[in-house]
Design a binder for these strands. Structure first.
Lengths: 246, 246
DNA sequence: CGTTACGTTGACAGATTTCAAGCCGGGTGG
DNA sequence: CCACCCGGCTTGAAATCTGTCAACGTAACG
């Protein structure tokens, strides 16, 4: 149930396979992708806005966040990624990065050269479709975040984000029963849902008080999924998990 | 300088060509895509959340908005599209729509069958890349909106949105000097930047009072681009307009 | 001429931010 | 081993922004 130890290729294959079965050749093509593994500590960026990358990164362990700053220095986290995700896959077709990516606490990622991905895609068109789809799901998630931040109040927003996390982590086997590890700071959480850290703290307490979540250190447990879903106005269609989770 | 009269194929070709030159075969493949044209009046949806479309729509005239509703009935517009855009291109790889799309006032769109797009892409892999890129730019824009809505105050938000519009409309030849038509309701505008309609109205007045914009009916003119850019904390990189607009 | 959709205003309530201070636990250096 | 420091978490109170409610103006239109 730990994740860090999984090989990059297994993570990637498993994820793509959740959409459609890969042929042996396709699986082999993924297998053959050269990956350079690196652990990045909190505080450093994995990629920075304005960069013109020649590679993209597959998350192997830990979480990462996609973020941007306003002129005033306020930070918005526009996406959180979990092991198996490729947060900068967009760079395959967009020359310059329009956001930065940083690890939460610390995380290990595998770098894959664009050239290698392109070749694999050329030879196996269904891989193209699979990768394209990945980027589309990311886009769908950011649209939902837009709804969340733009129209829901902070309490609901947080409940919603927790719902999303539970499902996404479950999809990669990182949920144990009804609890999962969420090694993320309240400030980061606040930047993700567009509130101040102070308010974030109060909302968290409210959620706990209402029995929607329980926390122990970085562990979060959700005693009543349906209740949290309702509190978060959560409908998982936007995650496009073919499995059809509740 | 009008747009509505442009043929679907010209619009599409022109847009893709702004990224890289198309070969004659590629251009022909686009030309051969069967398009069914339809005008959709305000109030109806072009596609609805939950649908499983077998086609996607190219905007020919007017604007459209991508939106979702919360359980409380609040609407967030997560994207606005202009002629030449394909707002539901995602449906090519995501079976079920995770948002609805509606015309602003009224607009005419061209429907293209997924099957036809897929065939064109198979035969001309660079078209795949071009379409994929389109969806990536859309995703980039929604990330910027996230920053805008999550971290900037309403005044700045609106200035930012106006900046974006100016550039996007300029890119499709819909800007005359420093003025452009924005046939959009204040309520819609408000739903796009996540404020109430009342507040939207007041911000608009503030922008006018500060000389950042002038309005006459649906026409908006920007007397001082640099000033508006600054007020909106606007940096156009996220639009990925290769031309390198200011 | 009534209806309707949209824009405008004022007053008030509420959600969130900001500022400031205190607390807690873990790590480091003396 | 203990003092100290620092990041992260909590709390309270006041300041602001933004939303809500309600009413009115206005232009387009059948």
């Amino acid at each position: 149930m730990t994740t860090g130890s999984l090989s990059p290729h297994i993570l990637m294959t498993r994820k793509l396979e959740s959409i459609f079965a890969l042929s042996d050749e396709e699986r082999q093509a993924l297998q053959d992708l050269p990956v350079r593994i690196k652990t990045i500590k909190s505080g450093q960026d994995i990629v920075r806005i304005g960069d013109r990358p020649t590679q993209c990164c597959l998350i192997l362990e830990g979480f990462t966040c996609v973020y941007k700053l306003t002129a005033e220095g306020k930070r918005q986290i526009m996406a959180l990624h979990v092991p198996g995700d490729i947060p900068d896959l967009q760079s395959l077709h967009l020359k310059v990065m329009d956001n930065s990516i940083a690890p939460i606490r610390s995380s290990t990622v595998g770098f894959i050269q664009h050239e290698d991905v392109r070749q694999a895609c050329e030879r196996h068109p269904r891989l193209t479709a699979a990768f394209w789809r990945e980027t589309l799901v990311d886009a769908s998630i950011s649209r939902e975040w837009l709804l969340n931040i733009g129209q829901r109040e902070a309490y609901t927003r947080l409940a919603h984000l927790l719902c999303e996390f539970l499902l996404r982590l479950k999809a990669v086997g990182l949920v144990e029963g009804d609890t999962f590890g969420l090694p993320i700071t309240q400030v980061e959480m606040a930047d993700a849902i567009g509130t101040s850290a102070v308010h974030m703290n109060r909302i968290l307490q409210a959620l706990r008080a209402d029995g929607l979540i329980q926390t122990q250190g970085t562990q979060v447990t959700v005693p009543d999924w349906e209740k949290l879903k309702k509190a978060g106005d959560f409908d998982p269609v936007y995650l496009h998990l073919e499995g059809g989770e509740t």
